[in-house]
């Protein structure tokens, strides 16, 4: 499983492809504090200018192959139970239905998986927003290069009227809690 070793490819001009961060201590087990790793990756990027889209030289602290090491249950916080009200709220925010037993199980498993992050010691580590945060942000000239492709875009839509996309009316009220419970019961298998 290679959840934590990622590849980033960008087609955006000016931002070079660069995998700067080693994976988390939990997974690599290389014993180096996270701050040291960060320092070395910042140094490498500021001292060695690299051509666009070139591959960075291999950092020996980054394993060549993804590794996986499960964290024992007793090191994790107690499992999160997702109450029905929170499911309601999540559904509202995401406009995604998962009000089945299966959906709830899946959500709780996902939270359990993420619980492993609690094991990582992040004291005195400045959080990063992105692996590209030390790169220069490319600035584009204000010249029209795109647009005028309504036909192409409208073809992608299931439903159009004249040159408009058609969407369902906004703010559809979600089912009340009783209705939700009924649906949940129904879905049990």
């Amino acid at each position: 499983m290679s959840v934590f070793s990622f590849t980033i490819s960008r087609t955006c001009p000016g931002v070079s492809q660069k995998i700067a961060r080693p994976s988390l201590k939990l997974l690599t087990g290389d014993g180096l504090p996270a701050t040291d790793r960060r320092k070395c990756c910042l140094q490498s990027s500021s001292t060695t200018p690299r051509r666009l889209f070139s591959s960075p030289p291999h950092n020996p602290k980054v394993p060549q192959v993804p590794t996986w090491e499960p964290v024992p249950e007793d090191q994790l916080p107690p499992p999160t139970q997702v109450p029905a009200d929170l499911v309601d709220k999540l559904e509202r925010l995401a406009l995604v239905d998962f009000r089945t037993k299966q959906g709830l199980d899946c959500l709780e498993k996902a939270i359990r998986f993420a619980d492993q992050l609690h094991v990582v010691d992040t004291t005195e580590v400045e959080p990063m927003d992105s692996v590209l945060e030390d790169r220069a942000l490319y600035l584009r000239n204000d010249a029209v290069m795109e647009g005028d492709c309504a036909e192409k875009l409208l073809q992608l839509s299931k439903n159009t009227v004249e040159e408009y996309f058609v969407a369902p009316p906004g703010n559809i009220p979600l089912p009340k809690r009783e209705e939700r419970t009924a649906i949940l019961k129904h879905s049990e298998f």
Binding site: G147, C149, A150, F165
Partner: peptide
């Protein structure tokens, strides 16, 4: 401008 005529793939 005519609807959706000023739209790039990113905007969509």
């Amino acid at each position: 401008a005519p609807p959706n005529s000023l739209v790039s793939f990113f905007d969509a």
